[in-house]
């Protein structure tokens, strides 16, 4: 897959968040490419089975495309963190640098960065959430203890999405909780064990907490916690099917 295809998928990932449909003009603006070239590329992506595209209805990602797009987005945002936190590169330059580097980033290095930065969850500009990795680990703890060799781990079996991306009334099953052992333990004790069904009861405005119903109780989880709790992706949640 070429770097430019990856860039397209990444752009589509961001543009189709919250079940939105991307349009040619939006993509053209974002990538700074003429609409004609965008249309051309979208046809190619549709042929490859990455997007659903019809001329007047806009673009959505297919399951295959979404997976790919999420992975690239994760690499990009992780790199931004790394460049910013470790190499102290300014906020204005991390995006461009990460764009250049992400296409060459292997899973092994991606994992090493994630571990070094202690499973970060947001970009340096503190707005966009870093998606979960697609490795088949059940927890960051397991990933930390795992030696080299990702072949044996394989990819994650289910698609996951963070609680923060869900809408009110949506129901989902807990897949895993990212990061810090202590918060993980507290959530486990409150009943969020893997496989548990949770329902979003309420989402506070202005990036406020998410209230969930779990095992007959109601919990408010701050945005940071919600971003780190991943559930199996319910139908119609975030991005295209």
């Amino acid at each position: 897959m070429s770097a430019s295809t990856e860039e397209y998928l990444e752009a589509l990932y961001t543009l189709t968040q919250d079940n939105k449909t991307a349009t040619t003009s939006k993509i053209s603006k974002r990538l700074n490419i003429t609409p004609a070239s965008v249309t051309e590329m979208l046809r190619k992506l549709a042929d490859g089975g990455y997007v659903n595209y019809s001329r007047y209805q806009g673009v959505t990602l297919t399951a295959k495309g979404y997976e790919m797009a999420e992975k690239m987005t994760r690499k990009h945002r992780l790199l931004e963190r790394f460049l910013h936190d470790v190499l102290k590169i300014g906020n204005d330059r991390v995006h461009k640098e990460a764009c250049e580097m992400e296409h060459a980033l292997s899973d092994t290095t991606e994992r090493a960065i994630c571990q070094t930065l202690k499973s970060p969850y947001k970009c340096p500009d503190d707005k966009k959430v870093i998606p979960a990795c697609n490795l088949g680990f059940s927890s960051c703890e397991e990933c930390k203890q795992w030696g080299d060799g990702l072949e044996k781990v394989g990819p994650r079996k289910t698609n996951v999405v963070s609680l923060a991306a869900l809408k009110e009334k949506q129901e989902a099953k807990i897949a895993f909780i990212r990061g810090d052992n202590k918060a993980l333990r507290r959530l486990l004790d409150m009943g969020l064990t893997p496989g548990t069904k949770v329902t979003i009861s309420r989402v506070a405005p202005l990036k406020g907490p998410v209230e969930i119903a779990v095992r007959g109780s109601h919990l408010a989880l701050g945005e940071k916690i919600a971003c780190n709790v991943f559930v199996e992706k319910p139908i119609n949640a975030g991005g295209g099917g």
Binding site: D180, M190, L219, A220, G222, K224
Partner: peptide, 10 residues
């Protein structure tokens, strides 16, 4: 770092 809110809504 801030741990974030985990609060029971009784």
């Amino acid at each position: 770092e801030l741990t974030g809110l985990i609060m029971e809504m009784h």
